[in-house]
């Protein structure tokens, strides 16, 4: 049976529909690579739970995870508790505090530097419609709960922005710098710095501050660019320079959102700080590596739980602050 004219018309309509080749290509490549990774022999993922692996797992949960002291005297739950308290008191609590400390110092440096640099990097009239980061398609871990208000803000200043960037070249370089610093893994930065700096927590702090400074710098810049230009204009009319205008007029408006963003990054900072110790600095990560060298699996496990609990706590704190700010 030959296709009817109607079917031909429909086929023709389907053939001539608009479609994005790039998207299809990207999606297909993504799917193919995922499937290839799972089903080709190169990663041996099919035998992830093969016999010997399963034996490993079983041994891990039944033997490896039991602390030696508990194994020796078979002292059940109380023994576990005593052992855990001992490890906590001995070093884990201190290491948790250090981890938090690294994150706090790093976020203070990052936010401070980002705030100063963003004042110089904020452009006059960033784009005709005043897009927010979400609309541009850059996520950069922006909390989505804030994006709604940001989009609304962006709409409010869609036509004119009267702020002038201090100098187009300085602004461009700064924005490029923000992009560069965030694309390198912070662990690698810390690793490289640990080899050159004296033995303190600075490499971890600096690596975190650099990475987050880049991210916050860009987010702050966007926030400043999306502030409605009203008060800035009157300031400029009375003779204020561009940076002065940003500080006096745009920052007060952008302040709340900048604080929210900072707290959002703080949570991620704590999470990253737990592992940065692995390059040889006293934090949870350092103890984990050390316990690993001693092949003390239960302590590793306990330390990982410690890290998880401070991350959860900071997540809670950051969420609370952001909710109050909204």
């Amino acid at each position: 049976m030959s296709p009817s004219p109607l079917d031909k018309r429909i086929a023709e309509l389907r053939r001539t529909r608009s479609r994005s080749l790039g998207l299809r290509l990207g999606g297909t490549i993504f799917a193919c690579l995922v499937l290839y990774a799972w089903f080709s022999p190169s990663l041996e993922l099919h035998n992830l739970f093969a016999e010997d692996r399963r034996e490993n797992l079983q041994r891990f949960f039944t033997v490896d995870l039991v602390p030696i002291s508990v194994q020796r005297d078979g002292s059940g739950l109380l023994g576990w508790l005593a052992w855990a308290l001992g490890v906590l008191q001995d070093r884990a609590l201190l290491a948790s505090a250090q981890t938090l400390g690294i994150a706090i110092v790093a976020i203070v440096i990052a936010a401070g530097a980002a705030a100063i640099l963003a004042s110089f990097a904020a452009r006059e009239d960033p784009s005709p419609t005043g897009t927010s980061s979400r609309e541009k398609g850059n996520f950069c871990e922006v909390p989505t709960e804030n994006s709604r208000s940001q989009i609304a803000d962006a709409g409010a200043c869609s036509t004119v922005t009267s702020r002038k960037a201090s100098s187009p070249w300085l602004g461009r370089c700064l924005r490029l710098g923000f992009g560069l610093t965030r694309s390198l893994p912070e662990y690698l930065l810390a690793f490289l710095m640990a080899a050159t700096l004296p033995h303190t927590a600075w490499p971890a702090v600096l690596a975190l501050a650099l990475h987050n400074g880049g991210i916050l710098g860009r987010l702050f810049t966007e926030t400043l660019e999306n502030v409605p230009p009203g008060p800035g204009r009157s300031l400029q009319a009375s003779g204020a320079g561009p940076v002065q205008t940003t500080v006096m007029a745009a920052w007060p408006e952008a302040f709340t959102r900048a604080v929210a963003l900072t707290f959002y990054r703080f949570e991620t900072c704590v999470r990253d700080a737990t592992v940065l110790g692995m390059v040889g600095i006293g934090s949870i990560g350092y103890l984990v590596v050390e316990a690993r060298a001693r092949q003390d699996v239960p302590e590793q496990f306990l330390l990982v739980l410690c890290g998880a609990s401070i991350v959860l706590a900071s997540d809670l704190l950051s969420r609370m602050v952001r909710r109050r700010l909204r």
Binding site: L6, D7, R9, I10, S18
Partner: peptide, 27 residues
């Protein structure tokens, strides 16, 4: 299926926009 597409095209013809069958709605 082809038969479903015919039905879809049919209702769109009824409202006078049969040729927009495969267009993206936001356009």
């Amino acid at each position: 299926r082809a038969q479903e597409l015919r039905a879809l095209h049919g209702v769109l013809e009824q409202v006078g926009i049969g040729d927009l069958l495969f267009a993206t709605t936001s356009t």
